[in-house]
Measured scan of single mutants.
Amino acid sequence: QIFVKTLTGKTITLEVEPSDTIENVKAKIQDKEGIPPDQQRLIFAGKQLEDGRTLSDYNIQKESTLHLVL
């Protein structure tokens, strides 16, 4: 699982696999929060994550925290 922290300070927990794409993660966030993926920007280690890449591409491991910017 990974954590996604929103600007409001809320933390969302997501069940993911390293092979999941960023697009996939955004879809999971939409399921939980109702935020359309095209409004979501995910930041990890100061980098904006691209939809077509996977979590493992960015070396995002379990218990990692991503930041969600709208």
Results as ranks from 00 to 15, higher is better:
D31Y: 10
K62T: 15
T8P: 05
S64C: 09
L14I: 13
P36Q: 07
Q61C: 09
V25Q: 00
P18Y: 11
Q39K: 10
I43W: 15
L66W: 02
G46V: 02
E17Y: 11
P18T: 09
S19N: 13
L14Y: 02
I43G: 03
I12L: 11
N24W: 12
T8F: 13
I29S: 01
P36V: 06
G9K: 04
Q1S: 11
N59I: 04
G46A: 04
E63S: 11
S64K: 04
T54E: 03
P37F: 14
N24D: 13
L7Q: 14
I43E: 08
T13L: 10
R41T: 13
V16S: 04
Q61S: 11
R41S: 10
I29F: 03
I22S: 02
E17K: 09
P37G: 08
T21I: 04
L70T: 11
H67N: 07
T65V: 14
V16I: 10
Q40R: 02
K5L: 15
Q40C: 08
Q30A: 14
E63L: 12
I2R: 01
D31L: 14
D51C: 06
E33K: 04
K62G: 15
I12Q: 02
Q39H: 09
T13Q: 08
L14C: 04
T8Y: 12
G34C: 07
L55F: 03
A45Y: 09
E17R: 06
L66F: 04
D57L: 03
V25S: 00
Q30E: 10
Q40W: 06
D57Y: 14
V69Y: 14
G34T: 03
L7S: 15
L7R: 10
Q30P: 02
Y58S: 03
K32I: 13
S19D: 12
Q1C: 13
S64L: 04
E17M: 11
S64R: 04
T65N: 04
K26H: 02
Q39Y: 09
G9Y: 04
K62S: 15
Y58V: 02
A27C: 13
P18C: 11
L55T: 02
S19M: 10
E17P: 03
K26T: 02
T11F: 10
D31Q: 13
E63W: 13
S56R: 11
I29M: 03
R41H: 11
I60M: 04
A27T: 11
P36H: 11
L14S: 01
L66Q: 01
E23F: 15
L14A: 02
T8K: 11
L42I: 07
K47E: 11
Y58L: 05
E33N: 07
K5R: 14
S19G: 10
P36T: 06
N59E: 07
E15D: 14
T8D: 12
T6E: 04
L14G: 00
Q39L: 11
H67M: 13
G9L: 04
N24M: 15
V25M: 05
I43H: 11
V4D: 01
T8G: 11
N59Y: 07
I35D: 02
E23N: 08
I2L: 08
S19T: 12
K62E: 12
P37A: 15
D31G: 10
I12M: 06
K32Y: 08
E63G: 14
V4C: 04
E15F: 14
T54Y: 07
R41M: 12
K28P: 00
Q1H: 14
N24C: 15
I12W: 06
K62D: 15
L14F: 05
G34E: 04
T54A: 06
Q48T: 14
K47T: 12
I22L: 05
D20P: 01
G52P: 07
I43M: 14
K10T: 09
D51W: 04
T6Q: 07
D20A: 07
L70A: 09
I29E: 00
A45Q: 15
Q40V: 09
P18V: 10
Q48H: 12
T13A: 09
L70P: 09
F3E: 03
I60G: 01
R41F: 12
Q61A: 11
V16E: 00
D31H: 13
Q48F: 13
I43T: 10
N59Q: 09
E23H: 11
Q61Y: 09
Y58Q: 03
L55Q: 00
I35M: 05
T6I: 12
T11I: 15
I2N: 01
L49A: 02
S19F: 11
Q61T: 13
V69Q: 10
E17D: 13
H67C: 15
Q39V: 10
L14K: 00
P18K: 06
V25R: 00
K62N: 15
E50Q: 09
E63M: 11
V16Q: 02
D20Q: 04
L49T: 03
P18R: 05
Q61I: 13
R53P: 04
D57F: 15
S56H: 11
A27I: 14
K26G: 01
I43Q: 07
I2Q: 01
D51F: 04
Q40I: 12
H67P: 01
F3N: 05
I60Y: 02
T21D: 03
G46Y: 05
